[in-house]
Design a protein around this nucleic acid. Structure first.
Lengths: 193, 193
DNA sequence: CTCATTCTTGAATGTGCATTCAAGATATTC
DNA sequence: GAATATCTTGAATGCACATTCAAGAATGAG
C-alpha cells in the first residue's frame, strides 16, 4: 500500500556509470549506494544483489542505446550519412573519455562474461540485437544501390562491430581526436566497399 | 648463501594464465599460489604484492610475445606473407579460446588502467613497442613497393592494432573460426590497401 | 661438521566487503 | 484517525581476501 520512492531509470543510470567507471568487481556496494542514492537495503529489495543490479543496469543501458540508435538512424535522412554520424559520435564519446566512457556491454563482456554464463548470454543477446540493427541499415543501403562490393550486409555489420570494439580499446592508449577520427573514417570507407 | 628455488619465468607464466583467466581483481592470492606453485610468503618476498606480480607478469608476457613476433617476422620470408600468418595465428588463438586467451595487455588495459596510472603507463609503453614493430614491417613492405595506397606505415599499424583489439573482443560472442577468419582476411586486405 | 645466511612455509591478522534484518517511517485503506 | 501494509534505514554480521611474520628447512662457506 505504498509505492517505491526512487526513479528506477535514474537509479540504474547511476549504477551504470559506477560500473563503467570502476568495473563490476571493483565497484563496492558503498560506491553503489552513493551512485544510486539508495541504501543497501533498498538495493537488495529491488534488485536482489549486486549482480542483479548489474543485470538491470545492462537492460537499462540497452534501452538507452536503442533510443539513441533510433534517433540517429531516422528514416528521413540518407542511410550512409546516418552511419557516418553514428561513427563520429562514437569517436566523440571516446575522446571525451570522462574516465572510461566505454560501452557497458563490452566492458562487462571483457570483465565477467567468462565467469558467468547467464550474464554472458544477456550481453551476447544485446550485442546481437545491435548487430541486427546495423545489418538492417546495410540491407537498406544495398537495396538503394549504395553498396556494391561482394560482402553481404551481415558481414558488413560484423566488420563494423569489430572496428568499433577495436576503436574503443585503441582509445585507451590514444585518446587524441585526430587519430581516432582517421581510423573511424577508414573504417567507414572499408565497411562500405 | 642460498638461491631461490623456483623458475621465475615459469612462475610468471602461471600468474599470467591466472590473471587472463579470471581478471586481476577476481584472481585471489589463493588462485595465485596454486597457479604459480609458490606460497604467499614467497610471492611477497619476490614481487612485493599482488600488483607487483601483475607487473612482473606483464613484463614476461611482453618478452614472450616479442620472441613469437620475431619468429614470425623472420627476414628471410616475404613481409606480407608474414603479416598474414601473424593475423591467422591470432584467429587460431581466439578460436581455441581455452577461456579467455585474450591478450594480457589489452585485458589489463580494459580492467585496471583507468584506476592505476603506473600500470596504464607500462601497458601503453608495451603496446607502443608492438605498434612500432608493426610500423617497421609496413615500412619494409612499402620500400619493397608492395603497398601503394595513401596511408603511411604508422597509420596502417594503428588500423591493424585496432582491428586486432576488435577481433579479440568480437571473438567473445562469435568464437566460430569461419567468421573470425573472414573478418581477419578483410582486415588484412584493408590494411594493405 | 658447524655456523651463518637466505629461502620457504602456512597459519594468524586485520581489513574491506556483500549481505541481512529489525526497528522506524510513510503511505494507503476503511 | 486508527490499522495495516509496504518501504526505508543503516548498523550488525560473517566471510573472503591480501598481507604479515615467526618458525622451520635448505644451502653454502669455512
Amino acid at each position: 500500500m505504498r509505492n517505491a520512492e526512487f526513479d528506477r531509470a535514474q537509479v540504474l543510470r547511476g549504477a551504470m556509470s559506477a560500473f563503467m567507471h570502476k568495473g563490476y568487481t571493483k565497484t563496492s556496494m558503498q560506491d553503489l549506494t552513493q551512485a544510486t542514492g539508495l541504501h543497501p537495503g533498498s538495493i537488495y529489495c529491488a534488485f536482489s544483489n549486486k549482480r542483479g543490479l548489474l543485470i538491470a543496469a545492462i537492460e537499462q543501458y540497452q534501452q538507452d542505446r536503442n533510443e539513441q540508435f533510433k534517433l540517429i538512424f531516422s528514416d528521413s535522412r540518407p542511410v550512409l550519412g546516418n552511419l557516418k554520424t553514428y561513427l563520429d559520435n562514437i569517436v566523440v564519446e571516446c575522446v571525451s573519455c570522462d574516465s572510461q566512457q566505454a560501452c557497458l556491454l563490452t566492458k562487462a563482456l571483457n570483465e565477467i562474461a567468462a565467469q558467468d554464463d547467464e550474464i554472458q548470454g544477456i550481453i551476447s543477446q544485446n550485442l546481437k540485437l545491435w548487430q541486427n540493427a546495423l545489418t538492417a541499415q546495410f540491407e537498406l543501403a544495398t537495396t538503394q544501390g549504395l553498396l556494391q562490393g561482394d560482402l553481404n550486409s551481415e558481414q558488413r555489420a560484423q566488420y563494423l562491430m569489430m572496428g568499433i570494439y577495436g576503436l574503443r580499446t585503441f582509445a585507451h592508449t590514444h585518446p587524441q581526436a585526430e587519430i581516432l577520427q582517421q581510423l573511424a573514417d577508414k573504417l567507414f570507407t572499408d565497411v562500405c566497399r
